[in-house]
């Protein structure tokens, strides 16, 4: 067997299912983001991002994606969007900002796309 789980998921365009493969890959990253529930941890991250990432043992790809605020990179590195939302919260960003960043749209255009889904 290769690295794919025995129960592989359906291939759905533009979608990464957060399964055991992703959960293992992203464990350190998600654990760091989970710590951002606490305001003092958010402050510690802001004070020294590099040191905070090191403390949680992020790998190079994860550290780079954090540094670049690269949402798709964070997903590819095993990030789960519920935990990443806590990372985004540090910068006052919400899920519509994340959506815009991942689709390459402006936030206004992304919001319009959602409004258009009503029709």
């Amino acid at each position: 067997m290769g690295s794919r789980p025995r129960y592989a998921h359906r291939d759905i365009s533009g979608t990464t299912i957060f399964d055991g493969v992703q959960a293992q890959k992203g464990y350190a990253l998600n654990k760091m983001c989970y710590s951002f529930n606490a305001a003092e941890n958010r402050a510690a991250f802001v004070a020294d991002e590099e040191a905070y990432c090191r403390k949680y043992g992020l790998n190079a790809a994860q550290r780079k994606a954090i540094k670049d605020r690269d949402v798709l990179g964070l997903i590819a590195a095993g990030g789960n969007v519920y935990y990443l939302a806590k990372f985004a919260g540090i910068f006052g960003l919400g899920v519509q900002d994340l959506g815009a960043a991942q689709t390459g749209m402006s936030v206004e255009a992304f919001k319009q796309k959602l409004l258009d889904a009503a029709n």
Binding site: G14, I75, L98, Q102, K113, L114
Partner: peptide, 10 residues
Amino acid sequence: QLDGPRAGFI
């Protein structure tokens, strides 16, 4: 859907 290039799917 919040994540990935398919974010905003309804």
